[in-house]
């Protein structure tokens, strides 16, 4: 679970894309998924997601993300199928319309979530921040906040796991509880988690301040983020995708 957010080093085509292009690609895929109403197009988008993962050389990760999403997807699918009444019945209370809608909803979810996770896997958070600041002129404090938030997610998860472990050792029956019961047992533990993260935020802010955070400007980064032909190609591809979603 933790390494789902970790950067995978590499030198693939996708790695070398400008971070802004990657964000653009993500946004376009999301937009296309919501604009289109055709199941086949959504399947195509899913294939695009997979292809991005394969080109980036993170096929394993792509598969893991896909599998993770699949669990939620199955749940959503069943819910949709059982609750949709429109259309002609196929079997029991299941209708053809229900199946179609459910399929679309689920595909959309998967298609939208995957590029986001993939971009995080093949982009250094620092590159993302710097590019946002340099190219899009996002104020540095905002970009820093964003990148810090992303960086803290795995730490947060790890901490929660450690806290649960510590409480198990004290006799709280986390190792026996399941599902909702476990969730309700976790709630009281959110207080220490919250406190420690607020404290960490404080410390991070202080550390940043001490190291001259406020002196940083848009031109402070030494690394440049030029656009290449590959970027251009990607943008053209994105536009085609978008056009496809609108027309089809």
């Amino acid at each position: 679970m933790n390494n789902l957010f970790q950067y995978v080093p590499g030198n693939s085509l996708i790695h070398r894309l400008n971070p802004i292009t990657k964000i653009f690609l993500t946004i376009i895929i999301c937009a296309a998924a919501f604009i289109t109403d055709r199941l086949l197009f959504l399947v195509g988008l899913l294939a695009v997601d997979m292809l991005i993962g394969i080109i980036a050389g993170v096929a394993d990760r792509t598969w893991n993300i896909f599998r993770g999403l699949l669990k939620i997807a199955v749940f959503l699918f069943l819910l949709q199928v059982l609750l949709t009444r429109k259309g002609t019945p196929v079997f029991w209370i299941i209708t053809d319309q229900g199946l179609l809608t459910a399929g679309k909803v689920v595909l959309r979810l998967v298609v939208v979530c995957m590029p986001l996770a993939l971009v995080l896997a093949v982009t250094r958070i620092s590159d993302l921040t710097n590019a946002l600041v340099q190219v899009l002129h996002v104020p540095y404090p905002y970009a820093f906040t964003l990148s810090t938030a992303i960086r803290f997610i795995p730490q947060f998860l790890e901490e929660m796991a450690e806290i649960m472990e510590a409480q198990t050792a004290r006799g709280v029956a986390f190792d026996k509880a399941k599902g909702l019961k476990k969730l309700s047992m976790m709630l009281p533990l959110c207080a220490p988690l919250l406190i420690s993260s607020v404290r960490r935020t404080d410390q991070t802010a202080a550390a940043a301040e001490v190291r001259g955070f406020h002196l940083r400007t848009r031109t402070s980064g030494y690394k440049r983020y030029p656009f290449s032909y590959v970027d251009l190609g990607t943008v053209v591809f994105c536009l085609l995708l978008l056009a496809g979603a609108i027309v089809l």
Binding site: E159, E162, I163, E165, A166, Q167, A169, R170, P188, L189, A191, P192, S196
Partner: peptide
């Protein structure tokens, strides 16, 4: 635990 903060709740 090595880190007391994990335990205090």
């Amino acid at each position: 635990f090595q880190n007391p903060d994990r335990q205090i709740c």
